[in-house]
Design a protein around this nucleic acid. Structure first.
Lengths: 205, 205
DNA sequence: TGTACATCAGTGAACGCGCGTTCACTGATGTAC
DNA sequence: TGTACATCAGTGAACGCGCGTTCACTGATGTAC
């Protein structure tokens, strides 16, 4: 916090952190600038020294999220190399890990009403993480017989969709969907079965 | 509408319809009771003749959604019988079809903050649709060799998650994720690959 | 068929509230001398 | 080291707004006679 008397020290980041906490609790729509200011121990008006307004604050949360996310994805991808399969699987796991470790960021990124194209910066940050998964998909697709190879963009979309679905339905306190599996196991098994369907894993693995 | 002078005729349903439209546009969090009343051509206070308040109105939207959804799922399941595989695939398609045809209902059901356990009625309605998919999964799992058969609840969860993910990421005006495939194709292909991974479809089908 | 009346669905004014945003201000900080 | 001063981060009061909800009311409807 580094609070030093009258001046705050690093209010900008403190506001982002507060916003992320509130977004995690209430969702991006339920989040309020005033509450974020209060959480950071500051008057609502002070927010305007650092952000243009409510939307700008949310956008910054999403932006930071994309940066972290892309880093995680890239790291996961690298950790699986040189095996294209291991790299691909690692990115899938990284997706879920990110959603669990940074729920506020995740919701700001994927459940905010604001477009990813709101600012060029945001678009660039979002493109980076998308590209990692797509690169992993392209590398992996080399191992599928060309005539039955689906477009890489398609199976990266599949993994993205299943990961997102698992997060949204099972990795939060979602009611009525309390499956007797951990989201991690669910996703791991799901992606495993999917990759087997692509002929990338042996039938008994 | 059946508007007959001073009295409305069927205001209750008109309010539900208005709410569904607004939820579709703004999400359940952004939806306001006042706007729904105005859309139905009525004073906000009139809503209280038919609902306990804002939350009750949203709950009714979700309830009607679950009823429609369960009907669709049951119909789809029946249409695929007696083939367990065809029945299962049909329920997957029905999921997406419902989300596209009834986006307001879908969002009220799955993106509202309110718990599915809010009322016994709601819980029962939600259980019905979940059970259809699980029943389909159980029937299908008979065709997998017992020793490598995952729990039916698990692969019904996988299909549920992928369907939801496709809807949430690709079936709406979601930015940055504009894949060059229709959500229908994406889901169809995804489930196909998944089922192949389970050994339920031949490797060349 | 015509009149008196009970019902009750919808009105409209009012409420308290928290929101996002603005504005003139104040006072702590760090620098120049 | 001590003093004068510019900077600018945060204050606090105020705004207009739309929200959900309440309340006494009104007037259209349908029934009893």
């Amino acid at each position: 916090m580094t609070k030093r008397g009258y001046h705050h020290g690093n209010l900008r980041q403190a506001l982002v952190d507060a916003a992320l906490l509130l977004i995690e609790e209430l969702g991006p729509t339920g989040f309020t600038l005033s509450e974020a200011a209060k959480t950071a121990g500051v008057t609502p008006a002070a927010v305007y020294r650092h952000f243009e307004g409510r939307d700008d604050l949310i956008a910054e949360c999403a932006l930071q999220g994309h940066a972290i996310f892309a880093d995680l994805m890239e790291h996961a991808y690298a950790s699986g190399q040189p095996s294209a399969l291991a790299a691909f699987e690692a990115t899938g796991r990284a997706y879920l890990a990110f959603a669990r470790r940074f729920p506020g960021h995740y919701m700001a990124m994927f459940e905010s009403g604001t477009s990813v194209n709101a600012t060029p910066q945001l678009a660039a940050a979002a493109a980076r993480s998308r590209d990692v998964l797509e690169r992993a998909a392209i590398a992996l697709s080399q191992h599928i017989a060309p005539e039955k190879r689906p477009p890489p963009a398609m199976f990266s979309a599949h993994v993205w969709a299943m990961s997102h679905g698992v997060v949204d339905l099972f990795a939060r306190g979602r009611p009525g969907a309390a499956a007797p599996f951990s989201p991690e196991d669910l996703l791991e098994a799901g992606i495993g079965i999917y990759l087997r369907g692509l002929g990338l894993i042996g039938p008994d693995a």
